[in-house]
């Protein structure tokens, strides 16, 4: 029988997790607050649009996706107090004014013949930005100290990829003519420009680079590993 008292290394040879990470507690909390705000705006918009789209399959997809983003917002809501933010509303904020303008512009289309615009805003601009910001956070935060955030991001990213694929495929099925292509591209460009100004879901540095190309990483904390 194996000796249960034989000393073992605290980290198994296959466990390569490291202590250093780009974000301290405050950095992580600020980002999580931005994520929560943006996920809230997304589920509110999807819920509101359900009644405005005549396409039955799209209606059902929007209702389904609405819940997923509400659940993401809830995961972040619950993470905030664990990051020493006892009043989660205080950090539930847009990254900046441009992000508020982005959401305003994204939610502008209401007419029943604007399904393409609605979906382009969500699936070709907003959700890709979520995927980017979450991936950056997951790959740059401390794998040990910020593990609860990483765990949530893993669940959320799975949803984001699934929903992005759903939305993109619906869009491909709706875009039929050169005119439709033009409409979709024009709307995407308009929203993308505001998003660039915002710098991403968590503002400039959402994916570690500012628009001038400089790294926006925080200090390398916990580098004593």
């Amino acid at each position: 029988m194996a000796d249960p008292y034989k000393p073992r290394a605290p980290f198994a040879p296959w466990d390569r997790r490291e202590l250093p990470g780009s974000f301290d507690v405050e950095d992580s909390a600020r980002r999580v607050g931005n994520y929560k705000w943006a996920e809230m705006k997304l589920f509110e918009a999807l819920g509101g649009w359900v009644a405005t789209v005549p396409e039955l399959d799209v209606k059902m997809r929007l209702g389904t996706h609405c819940y997923k983003h509400a659940w993401h917002a809830d995961l972040w809501h619950k993470r905030l107090p664990e990051l020493r933010e006892m009043n989660p509303d205080r950090l539930t904020q847009p990254a900046n004014d441009a992000m508020v303008r982005f959401v305003e512009a994204m939610t502008e289309p209401e007419a029943p013949d604007q399904t393409i615009e609605k979906l382009v805003g969500v699936y070709r601009v907003f959700i890709p930005r979520f995927i980017a910001a979450y991936t950056f956070h997951k790959n740059n935060t401390s794998q040990i100290t910020d593990a609860p955030t990483i765990r949530s991001i893993n669940f959320i990213l799975q949803d984001e990829f699934d929903d992005w694929r759903d939305g993109e495929m619906i869009l491909q099925s709706l875009i039929e003519t050169p005119d439709d292509v033009e409409r979709a591209a024009r709307h995407q460009a308009r929203l993308e420009a505001i998003m660039v100004e915002a710098g991403g879901i968590a503002g400039p540095g959402s994916i570690g680079m500012t628009s001038t190309g400089a790294s926006a990483n925080g200090p390398q904390n916990g580098s004593a590993a």
Partner: peptide
């Protein structure tokens, strides 16, 4: 249900 997600402001927003 979708409209209720959208129509009302969330307390604290």
């Amino acid at each position: 249900a979708g409209r209720t997600c959208h129509d009302f402001r969330t307390a604290g927003d």
